[in-house]
């Protein structure tokens, strides 16, 4: 299996966009070496702005640049965009619906050694509860690249979520990318697995195990958390026995609760959530933390069996 960083897809797309449109600007808050936006700086030094360790100023200043007609991609770690600069995201960007893109890396438990202070397991929840905010959580390198292009094309605030580590390349999710339109990457009639972000491969692995047990398994990759593709969710609720959601995020306020909200209102069906329980993370190696926090295919399988048996 090939592994590639999702943040590299972001960085590559930024350079491609930089060549296409001179209004594209990139900002960072002293983590350009880690988010990889330093690669944009190397090509477009005059359109790159390192704000220092100042996430709050960066996000409101990005709003200012958007008001002047630019398209700023403001970059930092997920935890600092949403938790340290949450009000700036809300009041400066989401409320006036400005054309600011917030591209964040180091999301989820797979941050690894830095531990709980840097592991944002809450950021999807914070971003998706802001009105006007589009929230995209790409699954691999290529989808990250496509999502960044799509975000640049639309007018309005977008939260783009990437990881720190290298993650599996998943050809099933390549090709086209439309914001708000989920990808059904495996057909099935017994049960549905809905994934977001870098756990898409774990969802596919779990589907294979389920097929071996004789259960026809549908896999939907929900790269956009908001606007949510309700249609594809409700179809799954009607056509299969239940849904397992899979995300590298708290089981609170993320994909799982979004899906549960839709089905409980329109077509109730069992929903089981795979995600980080309501707890802070800890230091460790990124891959081992995915095991320890129950974010692997066997964990998905277990939840699926709860619905099926």
């Amino acid at each position: 299996m090939e592994y590639k960083a999702t943040k590299q897809g972001y960085a590559d797309a930024l350079i491609e966009l930089g060549h296409e449109n001179e209004k594209i600007l990139v900002m960072d808050a002293d983590v350009a070496k880690a988010t990889l936006t330093e690669q944009f700086e190397a090509v477009f030094p005059d359109r790159f702005f390192n704000c220092g360790v100042q996430e709050q100023n960066m996000l409101s200043a990005a709003a200012g640049l958007a008001l002047e007609g630019f398209i700023p991609f403001a970059s930092t770690f997920g935890v600092f965009a949403t938790c340290r600069a949450g009000d700036q995201m809300r009041s400066s960007i989401a409320y006036p619906k400005l054309n600011v893109k917030i591209g964040v890396t180091h999301c989820g438990i797979s941050v690894g050694g830095d531990g709980a202070s840097h592991q944002s397991n809450e950021d999807i929840g914070m971003a998706r509860t802001l009105p006007n905010m589009t929230v995209i959580v790409p699954g691999d390198y290529e989808e990250s690249r496509l999502a960044t292009h799509a975000a640049a094309k639309m007018n309005g605030p977008v939260y783009l979520r990437f990881g720190r580590d290298k993650y599996p390349v998943v050809p099933e999710i390549h090709g086209s990318f439309e914001i708000g339109k989920a990808k059904t990457i495996r057909k099935g009639t017994d049960i549905t697995i809905i994934t977001t972000g870098i756990l898409v491969n774990e969802g596919l692995l779990a589907a294979k195990s389920l097929e071996e047990k004789g259960y026809s398994t549908r896999v939907i990759h929900m790269h956009t958390i908001k606007p949510l593709d309700e249609e594809v969710i409700l179809l799954a609720a009607k056509e299969t026995k239940g849904i397992v959601t899979v995300e590298e995020h708290s089981i609170l306020a993320g994909l799982g609760e979004a899906v549960a909200g839709v089905v409980s209102e329109h077509h109730p069906c069992p929903v089981q959530r795979v995600g980080v329980m309501d707890t802070f993370g800890e230091s460790g190696q990124s891959q081992e933390l995915l095991d320890l926090y129950g974010l692997r295919a066997p964990d998905v399988l277990k939840k699926a069996m709860k619905i099926l048996t």
Partner: peptide, 13 residues
């Protein structure tokens, strides 16, 4: 240091 279960987290706890 920086291992799961350790009290010596990457950042002070």
């Amino acid at each position: 240091f920086r291992r799961p279960g350790s009290h010596l987290q990457g950042h002070p706890y």
